[in-house]
């Protein structure tokens, strides 16, 4: 099966600082992954780890400085805006802010069918509005409303309807559950799952919410400082995280069952600045297991049973408890 989206060694550089002391900052630092048709791939990481930048780069909203993005067998990072336009029919993106991503003076009916107008698709817009609204569980009454008259969940549904309007092959969802309360989060995730089944969508989901990942993703990647530290099938990563950072993230995930034992791995210190990346393994400053080698040698992403882990000493099955912190 050929992948619908292939990303290779992708780098995104930002130039920051005043004119004379301009520095290059690597927002995304050499990332490779692919998404197969009908598959859901999740990107997880803390704020500032480069998830959103990566999504924008894939969508062509952010120029990339190295690497390549291939969509449906065609390289898209070298295309001009005009050349990219036909491909955008097949690659839809949903944005973080449910209400803020809807144009405030447009009615829901016009918002939902905007893709038809942009791509000059001949269609009965009235019946399309009806079809799309019912697909996302809204009634036709909503067609006459303005975005600020919607609740967060309703606005998110409108966002979903907009994204799937032209039956795309890939939907990029940036924090699809951000700003929604838990019950609505569940509804939106179920909706996305349902639509994926019915329409055969591939999805790239960006989130910091591990429950979301567990719920919807087939495969996942964990990002730290703009790099993937671990990639693999969701179930496997969840049951046996191999990278210490993944293990820490998973242990920090709130567990609804109070009887379950919680072995929290607390990470010391702050996320390092992207302008002063640590030497060696970039995670060593916060890794409870870090050894001398980690401080000096950059680990390669090595394949372990269908997973890729960037760590010198990947954790075994049933992760070792972190060593006691020496009093210093």
């Amino acid at each position: 099966m050929t992948a619908i989206l292939e990303v290779k060694y992708l780098e995104v550089t930002f130039r920051v600082g005043p004119m004379m002391r301009r520095q290059d900052l690597l927002g995304v630092a050499g990332v490779s992954f692919d998404v197969n048709p009908g598959e859901t791939f999740a990107l997880v990481g803390e704020s500032g780890s480069g998830k959103t930048t990566l999504a924008r780069a894939v969508n062509g909203l952010q120029p990339i400085s190295a690497g390549s993005v291939t969509f449906q067998g065609q390289r898209v990072d070298t295309l001009s805006v005009r050349e990219m336009k036909p491909l955008r029919r097949d690659m839809a993106m949903m944005f973080q802010d449910p209400v803020g991503s809807l144009s405030p003076r447009m009615k829901v009916g016009d918002l939902v069918t905007e893709a038809f107008r942009i791509h000059r698709v001949e269609a009965d817009l009235q019946s399309e509005t009806e079809r799309l609204l019912s697909l996302v569980g809204l009634t036709m009454d909503f067609a006459e409303r303005f975005p600020h008259q919607l609740s967060g969940g309703q606005a998110r549904r409108v966002g979903v309807a907009r994204a799937i309007a032209l039956n795309p092959k890939l939907v990029i969802a940036d924090e699809p559950t951000a700003g929604l309360d838990v019950s609505v989060q569940g509804e939106v995730l179920n909706l996305l799952g349902e639509l994926r089944e019915r329409l055969g969508l591939a999805m790239l989901i960006i989130t910091h919410n591990l429950h979301v990942v567990h719920h919807v993703a087939d495969r996942m990647a964990v990002m730290y400082l703009g790099r993937f530290v671990e990639t693999g099938p969701t179930e496997e990563v969840f049951s046996a995280p191999a990278h210490p950072y993944t293990a820490a993230l998973l242990s920090a995930n709130p567990e609804p069952d109070p009887d379950k034992a919680q072995d929290r791995i607390t990470l010391p210190s702050e996320v390092p600045s992207l302008l002063a990346r640590p030497e060696g393994c970039e995670f060593h400053t916060r890794c409870p297991w870090a050894k001398d080698k980690c401080r000096k040698v950059v680990p390669d992403a090595t394949a372990i049973n269908g997973r890729r882990v960037a760590c010198h000493y990947p954790l075994d099955e049933g992760a070792r408890p972190p060593p006691k912190k020496e009093p210093s």
């Binding site: 909203l61 839809a92 944005f95 144009s103 447009m106 905007e114 893709a115 907009r162």
Partner: peptide
Amino acid sequence: SEFVTAALSMGASTPRILRVHVMPN
């Protein structure tokens, strides 16, 4: 703003973005 970025990601042309999404606001 996110709604302009959203229009861009859908492939809207600059004149359309200015006319439909920016000017009324």
